[in-house]
C-alpha cells in the first residue's frame, strides 16, 4: 500500500492567532465598560467606528498587496489594533480623527512594513503618535466624566457630535467648559504653574490617587491584564518590569523633591499606564522576545514614560516610550539570547 509522506511533527496544539486575539478583546471588556460608565456613548462609538474603519483599511491593504483576505481578516489582529487605538482617543472626537489615525496604524505602520508579524512598530501607537503631534487640540479635549453634573449626551446626540461636530449643540465656550484635560495633563500644567502636588490633589476632585474616572479605568485594565496573565496569553515580564520601573523612578524623584513630583501611585493609575503595560507594550510582534530582553524592554518603557511625562511636552508618554523601545528591539533581542541548554559559559567546573 502506498502512503503520502510529510515531515514531522505530525501533531500540534489547537491555539491559533485568532483565539489569542479574541482573548485580548475579552480582557478589554472591563476597561471598556468602566469607560462607558464615565464617558458614555462616545466610547462605544469610537470603538465601533474604529473597528469598521480598521477592517476596511485592512481589506484594501490586503487586496492591494494581493494577499488572501479571509485568513488575515479573521485573525482579529486589526480588531485589536482598532480597539486599543480607540481607547486612547477622547470620546466624542470627530470621526476623521479616527480615520487619519487608523490610516497610519493599519496602512502605514502595519501593511507598508509587510503586514501582520512584520511591523516593527506598534500600529495603534503609531496612529496615536501621529494624531497627537498633528491635532493636539482634538486629542487632548476629553469631556468631563459624567459630562455636566451627571449628564451625558444620548446616543443620538453623541453620533451627531462625532459626525457633525459639537457646534451642532454647543458654542465653543460651552464645549470648552464641558471638556477638560486629563488629570495627568492637568497636574503637569499646575505643577508648572508652581503649585505643589499635595496642594493640587486637595483642591481638585481627584478621587483617591489619580482622578475619579481614571483610577477606576486603570484598575479595570489591570484586572483585564491579570486575566491575560492567568490565561498565559501574555507573559509577566513586560508588564511587571514596566510598572516596577515607572514606580521606582517616580519614587526616587518623589523622594528627592516630593512637592513637585506626582506620587508613584498617581503615575501607575493615570493615563494609559495600565493599558500600556498589559495591552500595548505586550504586543508580541513589536516587543522584545527573549526573557531578559523583555525585562529590559519593559523597564525602559516604564522609565521613558516617567521622563517624557515629566519633562516632555505631551500629556501622556506611553505611545512615545513604546515606539522608542520598538526601535531598539532587534538589538535587545540579539544581545539577550538565553543560555542554550548545555552551553558552557555560566557553568564552571
Amino acid at each position: 500500500m502506498e502512503f503520502e509522506t510529510d515531515s514531522s511533527p505530525f501533531t500540534g496544539s489547537t491555539s491559533n492567532i485568532a483565539s489569542i486575539m479574541r482573548q485580548v478583546l475579552y480582557a478589554l471588556i472591563p476597561g471598556i465598560a468602566v469607560m462607558f460608565f464615565f464617558y458614555g456613548w462616545g466610547v462605544l462609538i469610537n470603538i465601533i467606528l474604529a473597528i469598521v474603519i480598521a477592517l476596511s483599511f485592512e481589506v484594501i491593504s490586503l487586496w492591494l498587496r494581493k494577499r488572501p483576505i479571509k485568513p488575515f481578516l479573521s485573525d482579529y489582529s486589526a480588531v485589536v489594533t482598532a480597539c486599543l487605538f480607540a481607547l486612547t482617543i477622547p470620546p466624542l472626537a470627530p470621526w476623521w480623527i479616527l480615520m487619519v489615525g487608523l490610516f497610519f496604524a493599519i496602512v502605514i505602520a502595519k501593511h507598508l512594513y509587510g503586514g501582520l508579524g512584520y511591523n516593527p512598530f506598534n500600529p495603534a501607537m503609531i496612529g496615536f503618535a501621529v494624531l497627537i503631534v498633528s491635532f493636539p487640540l482634538q486629542m487632548t479635549q476629553w469631556i468631563q466624566p459624567h459630562f455636566m453634573d451627571g449628564y451625558l449626551p444620548s446616543l443620538l446626540e453623541s453620533l451627531h457630535i462625532v459626525f457633525n461636530g459639537f457646534e451642532v449643540f454647543y458654542n465653543l465656550d460651552q464645549w470648552d467648559a464641558m471638556t477638560m484635560a486629563t488629570p495627568l495633563d492637568d497636574v503637569k500644567i499646575e505643577l508648572k504653574a508652581g503649585h505643589y502636588f499635595s496642594e493640587i490633589m486637595q483642591t481638585r476632585p481627584y478621587g483617591l490617587v489619580s482622578g475619579k474616572a481614571w483610577e477606576w479605568i486603570s484598575l479595570s485594565y489591570l484586572i483585564g491584564g491579570l486575566w491575560l496573565l492567568y490565561k498565559g496569553i501574555i507573559n509577566w515580564r513586560i508588564p511587571v518590569s514596566l510598572l516596577f520601573a515607572l514606580a521606582m523612578t517616580a519614587t526616587i524623584f518623589g523622594w528627592i523633591e516630593p512637592d513637585t513630583h506626582p506620587s508613584s501611585l498617581f503615575h501607575l493609575f493615570s493615563g494609559a499606564t495600565m493599558l500600556g503595560a498589559f495591552f500595548i507594550a505586550t504586543d508580541p510582534v513589536s516587543a522584545s522576545t527573549t526573557p531578559r530582553g523583555q525585562l529590559f524592554y519593559g523597564a525602559s518603557i516604564g522609565f521613558f514614560i516617567y521622563v517624557i511625562r515629566t519633562w516632555g511636552n505631551y500629556p501622556d508618554a506611553v505611545a512615545f516610550s513604546v515606539l522608542i523601545m520598538n526601535m531598539s528591539v532587534p538589538m535587545i533581542d540579539y544581545f539577550t539570547q538565553p543560555r542554550v541548554f548545555g552551553a558552557k559559559s555560566e557553568k564552571k567546573s
Binding site: 500540534g12 496544539s13 491555539s15 489569542i20 488575515f72 508580541p284
Partner: peptide, 22 residues
C-alpha cells in the same frame, strides 16, 4: 491533528513573535 490541524486545513500565518515556541 485531532487536537488541531497544522499541516492540513489551517493556513500557515506569519510569526507573531508570541514566544510560545521559545
Amino acid at each position: 491533528q485531532q487536537a488541531h490541524s497544522i499541516h492540513a486545513s489551517q493556513a500557515q500565518m506569519p510569526c507573531i513573535r508570541c514566544g510560545k515556541c521559545m
